[in-house]
């Protein structure tokens, strides 16, 4: 048998070896990430100015802007949020709190996780058939919002369920024990205590939606659009208009894709600038998610 100090030395060596290798891999990955982001910022950041944000696309790179794409992205995201948030939270809540635990719900659960990993282009194809042709929504903001809504719905459901599961069972029992109904337990306890986690999930889902390109290409997002959708507010009664839902649209990542595929150098700079705008929006949303989670964690400790 080996002497104890040999065994210890060998164990120590593997211990240190693993820490060093892991650390190196981490550093390498981070360097690649920072180089990519740094390159994007280096090439595109100076191009971002008021003119760039408020101009329509143009044949001339220096006159072109992202107004229509920015507005399109925001409107599509609103539709996505409106349809995926209530549905996703309700579905997650039902699965976690109400649904009986049997084979059927197990099957549904597995398939929701599967849906989250279906390539987004598949959603685009399905949306083209269903929303654009069957439901006759055309190549509209509504069709795009619904498509992205479907795409992020599994993410919202999964994060909602995780957030709900983090509420300890003894809190539910405490509420039941004074005579609360299931709905009262959900409304007064489960939802309020898990809302930090749910909001985080929603924001992360939406920040994923804002960068999605493929499904919107298949349903026919425009790449060159020099007008805005109809305004949501009108001067005459009833003051609110939903005509914009049926208008054609462009979104930021498609604008970026369009510019990057042009030969002129000026458009490549524009593409980098759109990339920076998308990154800033996404990182901003993720930062908000982290902030919300942190604030809720601080208030509630089990």
């Amino acid at each position: 048998m080996d002497r104890v100090d040999h065994i210890v030395r060998r164990s120590r060596f593997f211990d240190a070896f693993f820490a060093v290798v892991g650390g190196l891999i981490l550093v390498a990955v981070l360097i690649v990430l920072f180089v990519l982001i740094g390159d994007l910022f280096y090439r595109g950041f100076d191009r971002i100015n008021w003119q760039f944000l408020t101009s329509f696309p143009s044949r001339f790179a220096e006159r072109a802007g992202i107004l229509s794409a920015l507005v399109g992205s925001i409107l599509v995201l609103i539709v996505t949020a409106v349809c995926s948030i209530p549905l996703g939270i309700a579905a997650g809540l039902y699965l976690e709190e109400y649904a009986p635990k049997n084979r059927l719900t197990a099957l549904i659960e597995i398939n929701i996780s599967n849906l989250a990993s279906v390539p987004s282009i598949i959603y685009g194809l399905m949306a083209l058939g269903l929303f654009v042709y069957k439901l006759n929504l055309g190549q509209s903001i509504l069709a795009a919002g619904l498509t992205l809504g479907l795409l992020v719905l599994p993410i919202v459901i999964v994060t909602t369920r995780e957030a709900i599961r983090s509420v300890p069972q003894h809190i539910r029992e405490a509420a039941f024990a004074v005579g609360a109904t299931k709905w009262q337990v959900v409304r007064d306890h489960v939802l309020p205590y898990s809302s930090g986690g749910i909001m985080t999930g929603v924001i992360i889902a939406l920040s994923r939606a804002i960068g999605e390109t493929a499904p919107l290409v298949t349903i026919g997002a425009l790449t060159f659009i020099s007008f805005l959708p109809s305004p949501p507010l009108t001067p005459e009664p009833p003051f609110i208009s939903f005509k914009w839902l049926m208008d054609p649209f462009a979104v930021l990542p498609i604008q970026m894709f369009n510019w990057i595929s042009r030969p002129q150098e000026g458009f490549h700079v524009n593409a980098a600038a759109v990339g920076v705008v998308i990154l800033i929006i996404t990182l901003g949303m993720n930062a908000a998610a982290i902030l919300i989670r942190w604030r809720f964690r601080r208030r509630i400790k089990w």
Binding site: I171, E173, A174, A175, A177, V178, H189, R299, I300, K301
Partner: peptide
């Protein structure tokens, strides 16, 4: 009939 549990479990 109300109940008091093993571990204190006040609501947050």
């Amino acid at each position: 009939i109300s109940m008091v549990f093993q571990k204190p479990n006040p609501f947050p």
